[in-house]
Design a protein around this nucleic acid. Structure first.
Lengths: 359, 359
DNA sequence: ATGAAAGCGCTAACAA
DNA sequence: TTGTTAGCGCTTTCAT
């Protein structure tokens, strides 16, 4: 036979469906009533149907967290923080993956109207007007963990990348490194843009010019290796290299040719836009016989679990992923509670986690 | 104003709700009808409510994947594989975390009766009779990615840990390493038990006795470091160590005292029960000045993304996480399709991914 | 081909 | 305090 419903429980207990519902929801009832219902529930193994319930009450008590890539350890940190807050508030958290394309992000936000959950925390990799529009029009509250324009009018928790870059640059400077290169992720992403801007500002503020800049195709380990290879081949290639790769790479390598001496310099430090890229780079450094941190210091960003797992452990800018996750969740809960509050934009300040990849 | 419903669309289009539903579901209708409904849908920005729909049709077109720890990279691999299969079949995948306790796993399985999804893939860390019972009684199909007894009568995809251990041991042997130690995870877990058994068998089959065995508190990096420290302190401690840690550690360190010469041996190889533990161990090896692979070779298990990210890259037993994920998803879809088929138990065979952590 | 109406399982008025 | 009943938004007979 099929799953029992309130009606089945009511029949078994010899009471009305309303009474069953009341007991189940802890509303006032006589002791005997509670007793009878609970026994019937027990006997039948009754479990209420969340869909029917949410159809009626208009809430699912589920919240969704959408991230671009489950393989990026920064999301692990964030997920844990969000989970903690929402489960404490009695919500179930479900995680979905969007992939790197903005159209998939938009589809996900639009899809929230189907009633899967009562709210959404999304950390978008790429943002366009469509996405912002879909967020504003979304039937359920959305908070963005990432950078969207203030004009968008949505709740936002974001990191302070420029400040983080400043921490990284000044730390390196303090350690006597001045030939700093930058390994960014795709510049057409939200973090990619922010990091690029932050890096440029931080260097300028300290009177430095980048030794080289390369852009990885993704915020992944594999892309980090590839871009790292590009960065290094442009620098270690002799003037009369046969295969011409050095020149080719130099062509894509931003400021690579504009060293202070008018020719290429080997960097004594590299800042990577996230930890995965940094670790990828370190593999390439090892491959060409450069030692970290002796020959080249490396700084990552995100201060994810990977930073302490990597070898040598990676100095990394902590952009507050845990705190951003926590506060994003809190903001979402607050908005679910009161949808009229004006959108907030919270900025979480970075710190630097110094480990052995810098001297 | 509120979200539009079929009724609203019907009114706007000047047709009946039934016709709206039909057009939305691609059932036969005149061209004009389709046209009118679609325009109304467009205008109102109508999105059907998935809860109401699933309440009626009895299906959610959502599938759940439950893992113990999102921080474990082996689940990333599995998640990707599952996602690919289920999305190709038109299902949405949602991921939830159970945590390490069996009671939480049971609660999750029981909770599936609420109708969150049409099926569940669960990779349980710990299994007891309650869990098996809950799986058997679950209202929606469940497939287990892990090892449960055949008597449980549930669909299962599991790895072949013993075979994997054999690959690891024989690889080390072939590289001339014979003083092999074992760094396991908690033995009261499914993988912990399987690995321990497999390791013992593989060693015995090759006429070897373990140099040491330690058990980490969790399958995490931190626990790997701690257990690694224990392993090494038991071995590097002199006979008259002042703080007594060497002895204490030796006490917990399984066969640590039963070397072939009647006293402790320094291992020339360590097999770890997963990649996170292996990486944690490598940090401790470095801390005491032992080089990988020169002094000590290290083999991990899972062949996760971390194995190639680690430095040196980690030789790891590929237990087929991607294939297990893929086949688990396929099995789930098949069972949703036909709930009468007899439960299958599929075993995925391991391979060895040799990297630089072994000579 | 289209419309009217029943009903999925639940909760919340309202009535008793 | 308890029971009766309407209805959440949708699909699906059953008539037309």
């Amino acid at each position: 036979m099929s799953r029992p419903t309130v009606a089945g429980v009511a029949r078994a207990a010899g009471v009305s469906v309303a009474s069953v519902s009341r007991v189940l929801n802890g509303l006032p009832a006589t002791e005997e009533m509670v007793e009878r219902v609970q026994r019937a529930v027990e006997e039948l193994g009754y479990v209420p149907d969340a869909r029917a319930r949410s159809l009626k009450v208009g809430r699912t008590f589920q919240l969704t967290l959408a991230v671009a890539d489950v393989g990026n350890p920064v999301y692990v940190t964030m997920m844990r923080a969000v989970e903690e807050v929402v489960s404490a508030a009695g919500y179930r958290l479900v995680v979905t993956t969007t992939g790197p394309d903005v159209v998939d992000e938009v589809a996900l936000v639009r899809g929230m109207a189907r009633g899967y959950a009562d709210g959404l925390v999304i950390s978008p990799l790429r943002v366009d007007d469509d996405l912002i529009k879909s967020i504003r029009e979304c039937d359920v509250p959305v908070v963005v963990a990432g950078n969207v324009p203030a004009s968008a009018g949505v709740d936002t928790i974001r990191a302070n990348s420029p400040k983080g870059m400043l921490l990284a640059v000044e730390h390196l400077l303090q350690k006597g490194r001045r030939r700093i290169a930058f390994l960014n992720g795709p510049r057409d992403t939200v973090p990619g843009t922010a990091r690029a801007k932050g890096f440029a500002e931080a260097m300028k503020a300290n009177g430095l010019r980048p030794v080289a800049e390369v852009e990885a195709a993704d915020f992944t380990f594999a892309a980090g290796r590839e871009a790292g290879r590009e960065l290094l081949s442009g620098l270690t290639a002799g003037p009369n290299r046969a295969d011409g790769r050095g020149a080719a790479a130099g062509g894509r390598a931003g400021a690579g040719g504009r060293g202070t001496k008018g020719r290429k310099q080997v960097p004594d430090a590299v800042i990577a836009a996230n930890d995965l890229l940094a670790v990828g780079l370190m593999h390439e450094l090892a491959a060409v016989g450069l030692e970290v941190p002796k020959d080249v210091a490396v700084v990552g960003m995100d201060d994810s679990e990977l930073a302490e797992q990597s070898f040598p452990p990676l100095t990394s800018v902590n952009l507050g992923s845990a705190e951003r996750g926590r506060r994003a969740a809190e903001l979402l809960l607050a908005r679910i509670d009161d949808d009229t509050r004006t959108p907030r934009r919270i900025v979480v300040q970075p710190t630097l986690s110094v480990r052995r990849s810098t001297p």
